[in-house]
Write a protein that binds this DNA or RNA. Structure first.
Length: 488
RNA sequence: GGCGCGUUCGUCUAGUGGCCUAGGACGCCGCCCUUUCAAGGCGGAGAUCAGGGGUUCGACUCCCCUACGCGCUACCA
């Protein structure tokens, strides 16, 4: 049996990280077993449609490098892959269920249903459909259907148990008597999720339904529809939720929830994939860095843990750093260029100076957590203007002694002016600056910050000697003179 | 309220009856390295395995109860 899994999001906005994590697992499951992975859009709720969601779904998957074999954009043997284009299938299934006595038309109005629930709640009874329309006979049902709006309700069994054999959680038993008749086909002719997922998973030959934990409680509905329609049910794997570090459902409060926000913030797709992969799944007791290849080779749902996982940004940041280190020099340089082009202020001319980018890229590698940190660190190298900074910054690490800072700047001016233009290389610059220790009676460690600030406008960043070399002799001396001007 | 799921260091997790005086990783702390910031190296603190009962020669691992958290309880998915 070929494994076929799917990711079936609703186009109701930008895909959430938790949702995408389900896609990762479903995809990995298919690939690890040499099967197929498909994308299906579940747009049966017209009220919640958000324009542009489809593109956001495509973009999210592509960014992570998740590919699909069948889907709305690439087609496939079970096209269309958008539920709103498959209504006839659900309507046919609903008719079949009615004919088999496993579903019935319900003419109850929204008002009656609301009132019913209100009184049930008031009486501290569990809310649920009271079965008023269950007994309507076929003839009456047919005739009322011609003039009254109706929904099709699935008739859940009254006795016995429905057993879900979940691949992650094991056996879960539901009492049929506690299940209530749910709407399978809405009055607008659209199916609810319950009907649509069963019809499509069967029709598309899905073998494993891999989805979020929030679906566990409706699994008996799905199981009973499969049975009523005479279909072999899919296997089920319910994935643990992803929660915030506060243990609450991941929300805006706990950080960004849309996958693409992380792309914008400067995370590498491979790092994100690694992070998501290990949220609820593990390869063994040691692996924390796992390649795409390994994941796609060794994923098994048996190793999915059942408990919710917290989205820990510290871990993501760590992984991002690891993946940055893994890039080749060429790849890293391209990333630096891309983010610098993107984030550097608009007044700096594009395209950016190739040589500067090439020289500075290696120095950035160990100093960047997310890619959005690239531009602020190298801005001082680009554009004609010297960086702006408050003069207090110059002496900040000298206990605020402006005169001391001035002595340092003067000594540096003297020492660096002595380095000839043709010898303006890191080693010579370093020697000149180290030579300042004695006359100044100060350790380099002590006075370096003055020079960092003078050169780049900040006390921390890429190494000083490299900065000055890349900056060039004239610009370096000029910035020292400006610092001197501020201190006087 | 009902039903369901979950509960191992702050976090992600390993662990399927003895290998566990519970392992790894992130984070945290300290030291080293060091021109800043990082990175790196080394070391450390950190979990009586939610609590309580069983079963067993033996339980983190099996069973029951309790507590807490979460999910579902729509003509939303």
């Amino acid at each position: 049996m070929t494994v076929r899994t799917r990711y079936a999001p609703s186009p109701t906005g930008d895909p959430h990280v938790g949702n995408i994590r389900s896609a990762v697992f479903a995809w990995a499951m298919a690939r690890a077993n040499g099967g197929q992975f498909l994308l299906r859009i579940e747009d049966t709720d017209r009220a919640r449609l958000v324009p542009g969601s489809m593109d956001a779904i495509f973009e999210s998957l592509r960014w992570l490098g998740i590919d699909w074999d069948e889907g709305p954009d690439v087609g496939g043997p079970h096209a269309p892959y958008v539920q709103s284009e498959r209504l006839h299938l659900y309507q046919a299934a609903a008719s079949e269920l009615i004919a088999k006595g496993r579903a019935y038309r319900c003419f109850c109005t929204a008002e009656r249903l609301d009132a019913m629930r209100a009184s049930q709640t008031a009486a501290k009874r569990p809310p649920g459909y009271d079965g008023l329309c269950r007994g309507i006979d076929a003839a009456e049902s047919e005739s009322r259907a011609k003039s009254e709006p109706f929904v099709v309700r699935f008739r859940m069994k009254d006795e016995g148990q429905t057993v879900l054999r979940d691949l992650v959680r094991g056996e879960i038993v539901f009492e049929n008597a506690l299940q209530d008749d749910f709407v399978a086909l809405k009055s607008d002719g659209f199916p609810t999720y319950h009907l649509a997922v069963v019809v499509d998973d069967h029709e598309m030959e899905i073998t494993h339904a891999i989805r979020g934990d929030e679906w566990v409680s409706s699994a008996p509905k799905h199981l009973q529809i499969f049975e009523a329609l005479g279909y072999e049910p899919t296997l089920f794997a319910h994935l643990p939720l992803i929660v915030g570090v506060d243990r609450k459902k991941l929300s805006k409060r706990s950080g960004d929830t849309a996958l693409l926000d992380y792309a914008k913030k400067g995370y590498l797709p491979d790092a994100m994939l690694n992070f998501l992969t290990l949220l609820g799944w593990s390869l063994d007791d040691k692996t924390t860095i796992i390649s795409r290849e390994t994941l796609l080779k060794s994923f098994t749902v048996e190793r999915v843990v059942p408990n919710p996982a917290a989205f820990d940004l510290d871990r993501l940041n760590f992984l991002n750093g690891q993946y940055i280190k893994q890039l080749t020099d060429e790849q890293w340089e391209a990333v630096v260029r891309e983010w610098a082009e993107r984030d550097l202020p608009g007044h700096i001319l594009r395209p950016l100076d190739e040589d500067l980018v090439r020289q500075v890229a290696p120095l950035l590698r160990d100093r960047v957590g997310t890619l959005s940190e690239v531009a602020p660190q190298i801005e001082f190298l680009f554009g004609g203007a010297a960086p702006e900074y408050p003069k207090e910054l110059l002496s900040e690490r000298l206990g605020g002694e402006h005169m001391e800072a001035l002595r340092v700047v003067d000594a540096a001016l003297l020492a660096l002016d002595a380095v000839s233009p043709e010898l303006w290389v890191k080693e010579r610059i370093e020697a000149a600056i180290r030579g300042m220790e004695e006359p100044l009676g100060m350790k380099l460690r002590k006075f370096a910050s003055v020079l960092y600030v003078a050169a780049m406008g900040r006390a921390a960043g890429i190494p000083l000697f490299d900065s000055l070399e890349i900056l060039g002799r004239e610009r370096s001396l000029d910035r020292l003179r400006r610092a001197r001007g501020l201190l006087e």
